[in-house]
Design a protein around this nucleic acid. Sequence first.
DNA 1: AATGAATGAGGTTTCATTCAT
DNA 2: CATGAATGAAACCTCATTCAT
Lengths: 209, 209, 209, 209
Amino acid sequence: MTATTPDQSADAAAPTTERGRRKRAAIVSAARAVFEDAGFKDARIADIAKRAGASYGSFYTYFESKDEIFREVVQDVTDEMFETSRSGSGTIDPVERIEIANRKYVEAYARNARMMSVMAEVSAYDDFTGAMNYEIRKRFVDRNAAGIRRLQASGEADPKIDAEIAADVLGGMIERFAQVWVPRRTPEEIEAAVPVLTSIWARGIGLQG
Amino acid sequence: MTATTPDQSADAAAPTTERGRRKRAAIVSAARAVFEDAGFKDARIADIAKRAGASYGSFYTYFESKDEIFREVVQDVTDEMFETSRSGSGTIDPVERIEIANRKYVEAYARNARMMSVMAEVSAYDDFTGAMNYEIRKRFVDRNAAGIRRLQASGEADPKIDAEIAADVLGGMIERFAQVWVPRRTPEEIEAAVPVLTSIWARGIGLQG
Amino acid sequence: MTATTPDQSADAAAPTTERGRRKRAAIVSAARAVFEDAGFKDARIADIAKRAGASYGSFYTYFESKDEIFREVVQDVTDEMFETSRSGSGTIDPVERIEIANRKYVEAYARNARMMSVMAEVSAYDDFTGAMNYEIRKRFVDRNAAGIRRLQASGEADPKIDAEIAADVLGGMIERFAQVWVPRRTPEEIEAAVPVLTSIWARGIGLQG
Amino acid sequence: MTATTPDQSADAAAPTTERGRRKRAAIVSAARAVFEDAGFKDARIADIAKRAGASYGSFYTYFESKDEIFREVVQDVTDEMFETSRSGSGTIDPVERIEIANRKYVEAYARNARMMSVMAEVSAYDDFTGAMNYEIRKRFVDRNAAGIRRLQASGEADPKIDAEIAADVLGGMIERFAQVWVPRRTPEEIEAAVPVLTSIWARGIGLQG
DNA sequence: AATGAATGAGGTTTCATTCAT
DNA sequence: CATGAATGAAACCTCATTCAT
C-alpha cells in the first residue's frame, strides 16, 4: 500500500440488489478475517474471495483494490471503537467513572485486537490508516481531557496538571496496556489489572487523598 | 518473513579480511537505512546493495537472506536499547531517578524510533522480532519493578500496590508516549512533557505526600 | 529438482472451462517439447510459456513448479510405455511372440526416446522420476518373466534357468539396445537388428535346437 | 555445460612444483567426490574447493572452468574402465573367458558406478562426455566382437551370427545389468547373477551343445 | 453481474567466474 | 601463486489487476 489520502470517488458501484448487498457484506467480512489472520501485506485477494464464497472477479465488482477494502474494514473498526467508548455512565463517583471508561476501552480493544494490530502495521506506510488510528486515539484522549478538566473545575483533581498532556499520557497507558495484555493474558488477569490502571490514573491526576 | 526461531547456523561466512569487514558493516548500515525508510516488506535487497555501494551478489556473500540481515539490525537496536537504559544514576531522590530513567528511555527510543516502529510492524508475523521486542520491554519493565519494590521497602511508595503490574503499566505509559510523541513532536515539546510523565508515575505509586 | 515423493496435494487448480483445458494441454505439450530439447535443468519456465503461447504467469495458474509439470510429462510417458507394451499378440509361435514383444518395446521407446533419456538424467536426483523409471522397467521385466515361466512349463525353455534373472537381464538387453540404437541409427538398421535380439533371447533361454 | 568438443588448449598452466602437483591432485579428487555426490549441475565450485582444502581462487589457478575439471575426472574414469578390462585371461575355455570378461566389466563399473551414472546424465547435453561414454562402450564392444569372430573362426560359435551386432547387443546387456544391479543389489546377488549372464551370452552366440 | 483465466512487473536468490590484495 | 571478496546475468515464483466469455 502506498501512502494515500482517502479517495471517495469509488469506481466500484454500490450494489443495488439485496443479493448484491449480501455478497458485498460477505466479502467485507471475509476480508477482515483474512487481514486478521495474515496482516495486510500477506493477505491475498484470492483468499478473501474464496473465504467469501465469491469468485476472483467478483471481488473487483465491489471493490477497486486491496487498499479500498482494507480501508473499509479499517473504517468499520474505527466506527466500532468510537461507538463503544461513547456511551457515558450514570455514576457520579469520578474514580468509578474512570474505571468504567478504562474497562470499556479495553473491552472494545479486545473485540478488535487483531485489526488494531494490523492497523499499527499498516499505519507505518499508509496515510489513511494512520489517520484512522489517529482519530481513534484523538477521540479517546479528548474525552479523557474533558473529564480531567471537569474534575479540575470541581476541585477534585489537581489544577496544576496540564489536562491535555495528562490525558494523552494516561490514554497512552491504557492503549499500551490493551496492546500488550489483550493478546497475551486471560480475561481474568486483565480484569484484575484494571483497578491498578484506575488507581494509577486517579492518583496521577491528584484524585483521592 | 515467516515465523521463525533464531537460527545460529549462518551459512554466509564471516569476513576474514579487513576489506570484508568494512563491506559487511556498510551493508548492515545501508540495510538499517532502507528498513527505516521502507519498512520490512517494501525494503528491497537491490536498494540495500546499491546504498552500500555493493553489488547484488555481494549482499549474499554476507547474508543468507533479507530475514537474516533484518535480524542483525534488530539485534543491534535491541542491544542499544539495553545498553542505554542500563547505566544507573547517582542521585538519591527517587523522583529524580524516575525522571532520569524515563528521559533515558525516551532518548534511546528517539535514536531508534524508525526501527522500533518497523519492529512493531514485523513482530506481527515474525517470532524472532517479537521476541526481541519482548526482551526490550521486559528489561525495561523489570528494572522499573525493582525500583518500585525498593521504594516500597523504604516506605516511600505505597506498599499495597502490585509492583509488577504497576511497573508494566507505567512502563507501557512511557513506551506509548515515546511511540506517539517522538515521531510527531519537537524535542522541546517532548522535553516539556517528561516532567508530566514523571509526576504521574510518582503519584501513581504513592510517592510524595 | 530435489528428491521428492509424489505429492498429490496439487495447489494449482484444475481448469474448469474449456478454454482452461486447452491452455493447460498446450502448456503440457510445450513443456514436453522443451524438456526434450533442453533436458530438465536447462529447461526454463519462460521457454515453456512462450512455446505454449502463454504468459509467464499462466504457467503458474496450472502448475505449482517446474517439478510438478515435469512429473506430469513423466507420467504421460510412463502411461504410454505401459499402454503400448500391453496388448498381447495372437500368434502361438514363441519366437515370434518374443520378436513382436521386442519390436513393440523398441517402437514405444522410439516414440518417447528423448523423454526417456531425460528421465534417465533426472532419475539421478529425483525419486519420483526414479520410481517411474523403475515402474516402466518392472512392468516390462515382469511380463518377460511370466513368458519365460510359461515356456518352461510347456517344456520349450530350459527349466534350469532362473526366470526372474533371465527376464531382468534380457529385458535390460532390449532396454540398452533401444537407448543406444534409437537415437543413432536409422529405422532400417534397427529393424534389421531386431531379429538378432530375438535370436539371442530365444537361444539364451534354451529355445530352439 | 554447453555442447563442446574437447579443447586441449588449456589456459591453466600445469603445475611445476611438487606442492602444485599435490594440490592439483587434491582438487581432482575432491571434484570427483562432489560430482559423485551431487551430479554435474548441482556440484558447486565452492564445494570442490572447500573439500580440497583449497581456496576459491586456487581452483582457477589449476582449472579453467567447471567443464574442464569435469572432463578431467571423466577422462580418469574412462582410463580406468579401459585399463581394467584390457588384461586378457590365461584360460582357454571360451565360456570361462566370457565369464571373466563379464565379471571384470561389472567390477570396473562398480568402482566407477556413481561417475558412470553422472556421465550418463551429462552425456545428454555435453559432447565430450558423450564421446567418452561412446569410447568406453566401443572399446568393450569391439573386444567382444573380436572374441566372437575368433570363436566363429574356430567353429565354436554359430558362423551365421553377425558378430558386430551380437557383440553390441550382448555388451549392452552387460552394461545395463551393471547399471541396474550395481547400485541396488548386494555384491553376493550380483556375483550369483553373473553365471546367468554368461550362460545367456554363450547360448546366444551358439556356444555349447 | 459473475466467473476464472491471463498478464507481467517485481522481487529474491544462486553461483560460475573475475579481480584486488 | 594464494586468497576470498565482488560481480551480475539468469532463473524462479508471486499476486494484484485486467479481460474474455
